[in-house]
Nucleic acid binder design. Sequence first.
DNA 1: AGCGTATATGAGAATGATTATCATTGTCAA
DNA 2: TTGACAATGATAATCATTCTCATATACGCT
Lengths: 126, 126
Amino acid sequence: MARKNEEVVLLVVGGSTGFVSAQEVYSHARESGSPIGLATVYRVLKSLVDAGKVELTFDDQGQARYCARGETHHHHATCRQCGRTIEFDDPDVERWAGAYAERIGFVEVRHVIEISGVCHTCASSH
Amino acid sequence: MARKNEEVVLLVVGGSTGFVSAQEVYSHARESGSPIGLATVYRVLKSLVDAGKVELTFDDQGQARYCARGETHHHHATCRQCGRTIEFDDPDVERWAGAYAERIGFVEVRHVIEISGVCHTCASSH
DNA sequence: AGCGTATATGAGAATGATTATCATTGTCAA
DNA sequence: TTGACAATGATAATCATTCTCATATACGCT
Ligand SMILES: [Zn+2]
Ligand SMILES: [Zn+2]
Ligand SMILES: [Zn+2]
Ligand SMILES: [Zn+2]
């Protein structure tokens, strides 16, 4: 028997390094031999998001992008000049975000924390 | 002479408590007597976002929502269901951001910190 | 196996927010 | 006033996402 659709989608999403669009999931799944349809890709992604197995965000153009949950949570500090990026997961700021959300009574909380600046290398060379 | 379109859009966006959609901006502008078209609403919103006068985010369904950016530095906690927005400027997280940037040797640091969730009102009503 | 019913699937149509097009109008300096 | 050029609004086009529906599949029962 062929692989189940949910399994196929999870493999594609989980096998990608970052976030992927539904169209990309569809393409990759088809390339891997699955006869899955686009509608089913959306259906499965929705159920996976509802089940908490996949995370959903929207990019700069409002397009949905998905990523497997369970990859380690982290944020980025990016140099605006050379593009160098440092990934970090700072317990202090995570604690702060959780505490703040609780203080204002929000549930199902997410946060976006991005740092940008000029790195030491770029700053000391001109 | 009639009010300029940019002025009209800014008035509507600035006069709303939280984030508003482009369609809402359009409706409110027309209700207030402006003959502005929907296309111009989108155009003006885009230029205002590019100019940094208006902030753009996307709600749970990927729909664009806009909010006037104030003069003072602050962040937002936004309800993903009703769009209600709480502005905050928490010294703790500002201190954390500064300290973290210093630790990694970044200068000219900026940060993006956004909290989203479901507010108490939305969470307790269905 | 054979039958009945419920659920899952995929192709294609429909939806709806956003963007592009384009004819028209406003602006303004010469 | 004229002409060049930017701004506007109605409408069409785009495109990600959702809906529809005919078909396929799974499962329980005899
Ligand atoms: Zn650098
Ligand atoms: Zn975090
Ligand atoms: Zn709410
Ligand atoms: Zn800040």
